[in-house]
Design a protein around this nucleic acid. Sequence first.
DNA 1: CGATAGATCGGCT
DNA 2: GCCGATCTATCGC
Length: 195
Amino acid sequence: MDIVLPAPLVTPAFFDRHADRVARALIGTVLSFRGVGGRIVETESYDTADPASHAYRARRTPRNAVMFGPPGHAYVYRSYGLHWCLNFVCRDASAVLIRALEPTSGIARMRKRRGTDDVEALCAGPGRLCQALDITGAQNGAALLAPPFAVHARGRTLPISVGVRIGISKAKDLPRRFGLAGSPFLSRRFAGNDT
DNA sequence: CGATAGATCGGCT
DNA sequence: GCCGATCTATCGC
């Protein structure tokens, strides 16, 4: 019988970097919210120089205010009037959109919330992920390294795929989508298999 | 399969 | 008014 030691939380400094670096480093870490969650397998980065970012040109509004606060907090916004999307705030009002998880804990609860038994689709997409974890606007501004959130470090280096972001109309050519290479839990396959 | 329409609403130019 | 950092069902081939 094996004893599984809990992975340590990432440090606060983990988030105090540009979103491009954090987005890549997040692949393979484990996100949990009220005991439900999984390995992060897909992310996207956004910053103030990016026309696709809510914080483009460091323009501050009531909606994006959390992005201008300290790193290591959740920025949650509503998409298309009905889905929620979860971001991790990083340095200088940059942020990482969490796009997909490989479910590891609380799978029964996720199935119930999502209304499907397809584990590969439970958290494949930012809206699905929030529905499975029951993350809503109520979590906007919440600290990521304090209950009910946790982000656990990964053990070793993993093969990362890089591509263009999904579902945006501006700056669509930037290579700011990161994924665990070959994972079946991605919202979409990557074209190539770059590192 | 791939393409597309509809749901649904807050934030902004 | 307009337009999304989306998802699902339902077309057509």
